[in-house]
Amino acid sequence: MKKKRYAMVIDLRRCIGCHSCSVACKAENRVPPGVFRSWVKIIEKGRYPNITRHFLPTLCNQCEHPPCVINCPVQATWKQEDGIVIIDEHRCIGCKYCLASCPYNARYVNPLMPIVQKCYFCRHRVYAGLEPACVEVCPAKARIFGDLNNPEDEVTKLLSKHPFQTLKPEMGTYPQVYYIAADADAMDPFAGRKEWT
């Protein structure tokens, strides 16, 4: 059996910006108020009356070359063979080096205990044969999760059929969260007018 290489495709032609993923993640992983593992950025661009809206759900990119892993002084975080970057909460000393080195702001310190947490593709669900919580709930089926090593998998098919993007490719991190039809301004942390929230 070939090794797994987990990845997520977020099809922004489908995304409706409804935040179901944000809340599903909160419920699944008991993420406390004030921090998020999954968030939807919403921007508006253009000039009246030619305006469009763009959404960008973000989560840990499970990078192929994760800077957070390199910078952890106590080896509390590493990349598994199946591609998921995990944190050993018992080793973590809460020094936040990884927070500083993550180009995607994917990590946070749990306000209830001094450890760093982030999305890990709902590994506990995936290993039990379930989809990550955000994927299962998505009303528009914009999030697709699967194995890039399996040519029959939907993620593989989607990525072979459509042009795709990743966030901040210039960082050389090789993210494993792929976007279809992402807006350049939405992907740029500084461009585009921000939402009101």
Binding site: K4, L130, E131
Partner: peptide, 9 residues
């Protein structure tokens, strides 16, 4: 790391 399994709903 788990064994491969089809994704269930």
């Amino acid at each position: 790391e788990g064994e491969p399994a089809p994704l269930e709903k």
